[in-house]
């Protein structure tokens, strides 16, 4: 009786809150079928995305396969310390960040410029051909792409060197050079992805108000001026959003392409964090899970920090941000 009366008491005292709760409960009950649909995807997410985050604690432990994670000895930051002190640390950071910045500086503006240029064309056969052809390389798999690179740049039989020889120039051992690796990596990416990356900017350009262009034409603005003063400001939000997203990926150099392009001659510049984690943790003779997991976790955390900082900076500078 006492509990019942106190229950009714609290209900009358905090009426707005409890009706809110009961209304929410009613809505949950009404929508139960939606939760049933969500159950499988959420279960998948918890297992395949969140459980590995929990499992990442092996970075702080001395983990041996076959033993439960929680029974492995806690060693704190030893694995991280070992990584920071290893001679590989400086090299990996330099290669990874260098390759990313190079990719960003070259690969980020080119699609924007191309989209602005394409946007100046009248819709017709030429415009459609440029679009159709330039999207095509996007669909080539990384393995085939690297195979293509190796074929074209082969020292003795590749068309590029055959061409150089035909001009009487010495052959260049492209794939055997550590200095040339970053450029080959970045410019072949430009070849493969530029066309496809223009799509999003072209979509954004269609939302620019044509009345602005008309007014500018009346005022005597030429095409270049209109591009600069109307088109670019019009797509700036999209540019900023993509730039922030790209910043979050600075440490995530494409594993597949780098890994497949590696050879003993270019490893000095071609070893990046992700390929090193794979080799230490899974490909080596003695798998060192904890050490590799520590390097991977370091990578993830720095990536998150970069993303959040880029977002914060953009919020300050342009009042535009992702979240």
């Amino acid at each position: 009786m006492a509990t019942a009366s106190s229950l009714t008491n609290t209900r009358t005292q905090t009426r707005p809150k409890s009706t809110y709760v009961s209304r929410t409960l009613a809505r949950i009950k009404k929508n139960w079928q939606l939760y049933v649909l969500l159950a499988l995807p959420v279960a998948w997410l918890l297992i395949f995305a969140y459980y590995p985050m929990y499992g990442a604690q092996i970075a702080f432990r001395d983990f041996l396969p076959g033993k439960p994670i929680l029974q492995s000895e806690w060693v704190g930051l030893v694995n991280f310390q070992r990584f920071f002190e290893s001679p590989m640390f400086a090299r990996l950071m330099k290669n990874t960040i260098g390759l990313s910045i190079y990719s960003l500086v070259v690969g980020f503006p080119i699609p924007i410029i191309l989209a602005l240029m394409l946007n100046q064309l009248r819709t017709g056969l030429f415009k459609r051909s440029v679009q159709m052809v330039s999207y095509a390389p996007y669909f080539i798999s990384t393995v085939v792409m690297v195979g293509l690179i190796l074929q074209f740049l082969d020292l003795r039989r590749g068309p590029v060197n055959l061409f150089l020889q035909a001009l009487g120039l010495p052959a260049v051992h492209f794939m055997g050079s550590a200095e040339m690796f970053p450029s080959i990596y970045v410019w072949t990416n430009v070849w493969q992805y530029t066309g496809f990356s223009t799509i999003i900017y072209l979509a954004a350009l269609t939302t620019v108000d044509p009345a602005l262009h008309e007014a500018a034409v009346v005022d005597g603005a030429n095409r270049l001026q209109r591009m600069w003063h109307i088109d670019i400001p019009g797509i700036l939000p999209v540019i900023v959003t993509l730039f922030i997203l790209n910043m979050g990926q600075v440490l995530n150099v494409g594993f597949e392409k780098t890994f497949l392009m590696q050879n003993p001659l270019n490893l000095a510049t071609a070893e990046v964090i992700s390929t090193y984690v794979y080799k230490i943790g899974l490909a080596g003779g003695v798998a060192n899970f904890s050490y590799a997991a520590a390097i991977g976790l370091f990578n993830s955390v720095i990536g998150l920090i970069l993303l959040v900082s880029a977002n914060w900076a953009s919020q300050r500078l342009t009042q535009k941000s992702l979240f």
């Binding site: 969500l38 959420v42 997410l45 297992i47 395949f48 995305a49 969140y50 459980y51 590995p52 985050m53 929990y54 499992g55 990442a56 092996i58 396969p65 979050g248 992700s274 984690v277 794979y278 943790g281 899974l282 899970f289 590799a292 997991a293 991977g296 976790l297 990578n299 993830s300 955390v301 990536g303 998150l304 993303l307």
Partner: peptide, 21 residues
């Protein structure tokens, strides 16, 4: 729930824990 999904775009447990799973 949407936040739970979106967060995984920007942070992951990494290669090794996923492999072990």
């Amino acid at each position: 729930i949407l936040g739970l999904f979106l967060f995984t775009l920007f942070f992951s447990g990494g290669l090794i824990p996923t492999y072990l799973l």
